[in-house]
């Protein structure tokens, strides 16, 4: 079971969290003219990196905050956790 450091609550076991997918995917701004391909890529395309992966987790059984985790997808090692607005 992963041990994840919530940036608000500290180290907690994985069963308090829900996974939220690739954090490098950013939603296009509202009302902005974009290409179909940009939209498709936002909705569907994922790099699915092997190795360091920046991803979202949600502390659902805790503070209910979303945050970012940098984790190795081949070893599950966690390097860093960040608040949503922070970047590596």
């Amino acid at each position: 079971m992963l041990h994840i450091k919530c940036p608000y609550c500290g180290m907690r076991s994985q069963n308090e969290f829900a996974y939220g997918g690739d954090a490098s995917v950013t939603r296009p701004e509202l009302n902005k003219e974009i290409l179909d391909s940009e939209w498709d890529s936002f909705v569907y395309l994922r790099k699915s990196l092997k190795g360091k992966h920046l991803e979202l987790w949600h502390h659902i059984s805790g503070c209910r905050q979303w945050f970012k985790v940098q984790r190795d997808t081949s070893t599950h090692e966690i390097f860093k956790t960040l608040k949503p607005g922070e970047s590596i």
Binding site: L56, R64, W66, P84
Partner: peptide, 13 residues
């Protein structure tokens, strides 16, 4: 609820 929290905290903070 998770959906709303996601947009509030991550997309439109």
């Amino acid at each position: 609820l998770s959906h709303l929290e996601y947009y509030l905290q991550v997309v439109w903070p």
